[in-house]
């Protein structure tokens, strides 16, 4: 049983859950993901592992409520169980030989960027974290990030907290001030990862991005998660989810992410209506 041990609402649209999954927690590494189904008729969705506790046997997931499935997931309470939970899938973050790293997180992407920052910190690397949010109310994991970062720059679009501006401005500022990074890791909305990659390309700094495409099985069977990297078709589930940002065809990936948008919106409305009925 994949029981929810702990549930915390990090902000109005982002929830953290600690899920009992001893086998997965034994193996999990930063950068990997799980696939879950909320209930018997549920769809399979991939979520990147936000943290793990091998002793407690738990996996932490942090998700934004964006569609019907995440809305249903958010309805589950502590003590209840998720129907299916499988992993750890994908290739872990590559951490060897990196002495100084910039971690760029955007929005809920910070949930995935955090374990990466933590891992680099534990390995003794100098970690500069640059995180961006639309507004103050949406900020997550500030304390956690500060603990594992040698520098922590927080940006908001509206200037309601931290500095006003985009993460790319902040990163450019650090680079222009002479900071040298062996690698930049960018995790967040695709458009953010695209622009971070464009920026670092000009500075010739290797940049890894974490892709989160549509997926079904997550084990290399369906091919739904394919994307073009360096002109070749790759499968995010078995070849990724992290790829060289300078090689990823972001425009194609963004178009593919919109494949089911209309369906999703419809399903989400239906789910919301259902919840309303249950309340009435």
């Amino acid at each position: 049983m994949y029981t929810i041990q702990k549930k915390v609402e990090l902000n109005p649209t982002v929830t953290l859950m600690e899920v009992q999954a001893p086998l997965i927690s034994k193996k999990a590494e930063p950068g990997q993901f799980i696939i879950l189904r909320v209930d018997e008729d549920g769809e399979r969705i991939p979520l990147t592992i936000a943290d793990y506790d091998r002793e407690k046997g738990t996996i932490t997931i942090i998700f934004q409520i964006v569609g019907a499935t995440t809305a249903k997931l958010n309805q589950l309470k502590e003590g209840e169980a998720i129907h299916d939970f499988v992993g750890p899938l994908g290739v872990p973050t590559h951490t060897e030989g990196i002495n100084q790293v910039a971690i760029v997180g955007g929005g809920v992407g910070c949930a995935i960027a955090y374990p990466v920052a933590k891992k680099f910190h534990e390995l003794g690397a100098v970690v500069h974290s640059i995180v961006g949010f639309r507004t103050k109310d949406l900020v997550i994991l500030e304390e956690e990030f500060r603990k594992v970062s040698d520098k922590y720059l927080l940006m908001t679009d509206d200037g309601s907290y931290g500095e006003k501006g985009l993460v790319t401005n902040a990163l450019k500022g650090l680079l222009d001030a002479g900071e040298k990074y062996d690698e930049v890791v960018a995790i967040g909305p695709m458009i953010m990862m695209k622009f971070v990659s464009q920026l670092t390309k000009a500075y010739n700094i290797k940049t890894m991005v974490s892709m989160n495409p549509v997926m079904i099985d997550g084990t290399g069977m369906c091919g739904g998660c394919r994307l073009t990297v360096g002109g070749q078709t790759k499968f995010a589930c078995v070849d990724g989810p992290e790829f060289d940002g300078h090689q990823v065809d972001f425009d194609e990936a963004m178009a593919r992410a919109s494949f089911y948008r209309d369906f999703e919106r419809h399903a989400y409305d239906e789910t919301c209506n259902l919840f309303k009925k249950e309340v009435n």
Partner: peptide, 9 residues
């Protein structure tokens, strides 16, 4: 079920 040999074990 939900056990990916090569990943989970």
């Amino acid at each position: 079920t939900n056990a990916v040999v090569g990943k989970s074990i």
